[in-house]
Design a protein around this nucleic acid. Sequence first.
DNA 1: TTGTTTTTGATCGTTTTTGATGGAATTGCA
DNA 2: TGCAATTCCATCAAAAACGATCAAAAACAA
Lengths: 259, 259
Amino acid sequence: MIREACPTLAPQRREHIRLLVRESGVARVEDLRRELKVSVATIRRDLEVLEEEGKVRRVHGGAVSTENRLDEAVFDDKTNQFSKQKRAIAEEAYQLIGQEESLFLDGGSTTLCLARLLKNRNDLTVVTNSLRAAAELANSEPRVILTGGELRKISQTMVGPLTSAVLSQVRVDRAFMGTMGFCLKNGLTTTDPNEAFVKGLVAEQAVQVVLLADSSKAEKVSFARVSDWDKVDILVSDQNLPPIFTKSLPKRGLKVCVV
Amino acid sequence: MIREACPTLAPQRREHIRLLVRESGVARVEDLRRELKVSVATIRRDLEVLEEEGKVRRVHGGAVSTENRLDEAVFDDKTNQFSKQKRAIAEEAYQLIGQEESLFLDGGSTTLCLARLLKNRNDLTVVTNSLRAAAELANSEPRVILTGGELRKISQTMVGPLTSAVLSQVRVDRAFMGTMGFCLKNGLTTTDPNEAFVKGLVAEQAVQVVLLADSSKAEKVSFARVSDWDKVDILVSDQNLPPIFTKSLPKRGLKVCVV
DNA sequence: TTGTTTTTGATCGTTTTTGATGGAATTGCA
DNA sequence: TGCAATTCCATCAAAAACGATCAAAAACAA
């Protein structure tokens, strides 16, 4: 028998190879053959295509990764670390959204979870300075507007004067924001001043500001001041949120949702 | 019997297919046939329609989801068909770039190839309205500035007044641009007026404008006027470029590179 | 009803993909 | 360096998938 029915589509198989190569940095043809149950000829042809696309670089015996694995791993780790809580928080936040609204999403893994939930909503306009959120929504229903600006690689967000210029031209019904830390005294803080400035600007202009922050951020203080509590309308967090917040914040006019 | 009563309406069946494809990311024609109890011919016709609508992307043996996967460098079959040429054009264009320059990259597969070549250059500033180019450079060396604006899903580029506003604030040494079509009489044309406007704006402001266009674009005229030849400084194309261009354009002050 | 259009399924020649084979190239080791 | 083992590449044949085409059935209009 020369050939049996192909169980997987070629692009799917190639994607599999790409992931395997990226995961361990290298992959041997022979290992890929065993893993994917196809002939070495097919593996080689796939590697050829992937090299053409710039996804891997071929070497004698296999292929090595061309993608910068480290950066992505850092971000993905962060995405997974508290993913249960974060997803729950994102789902709660999603409930706040009405019809035909315009939203802002900033960078961060929780807002990225929220972005995923918006994919099938064709009535929304989503403004974001997060490249990841934009990528997530790039082929889905909502209207997407990017703020532009200089790309801050570590957070994959756009910041700086160009970002501010665009933000001054738009207004959103609801802004969903993350933060690196929050406490009663200092309000919201984050590591990067540029990032903080953008968040502050959005907080000024949004009709409603929703802070998405799991309890691990509580009582943390970071370098750059984002805004005080009076700019925030709703805090969505998890059950481990220290009671002091659920007590104090409502007195200051905030609504606190714990999931 | 040639045909039995159609149990489901065609749009309903296509929606079913769309959901199946989106759910698992891929679907084989054979599986869809079993699932939907129609002939493979019908499945293929449905996939053709869905591809036309941008809902799925057809591949040999079935279809894959178009959602997610920004890093999939494949817009359509054209990308693969001319990829050798496009990469050669991009490599030629890369030679034009000096030290410490600021560049603009617009949307399109050839400029995306070029973006890939810039990954290890830490002396460059890259301005782009292409989400794909930005994603490609998101974890690499060059400084990246996104223009912002409304995301045009079909081309994955940012366009509109917000884009214009940001572009008016920056100046680049070299702009690399693609086009849907070019001819001596009408200059550069593309399908979307918004896209054309952005390109035109960039052409005005860049010190040097480099047009990256393989020969398949020659003598094609599209709907929206981008700019006339006098805005373009260099055309990089392939050997199949009709001789009329290599003759006429230098007389109009352009340099023509054929790879 | 009758005639027309649309949709579906079958057929057939063509294209694409895959696996095997044999010779060339590369690597590792003495 | 020389030699053996492995890996690569070009080529070919089989199988699967594809596209074009046509005919039957259904839906539709008059």
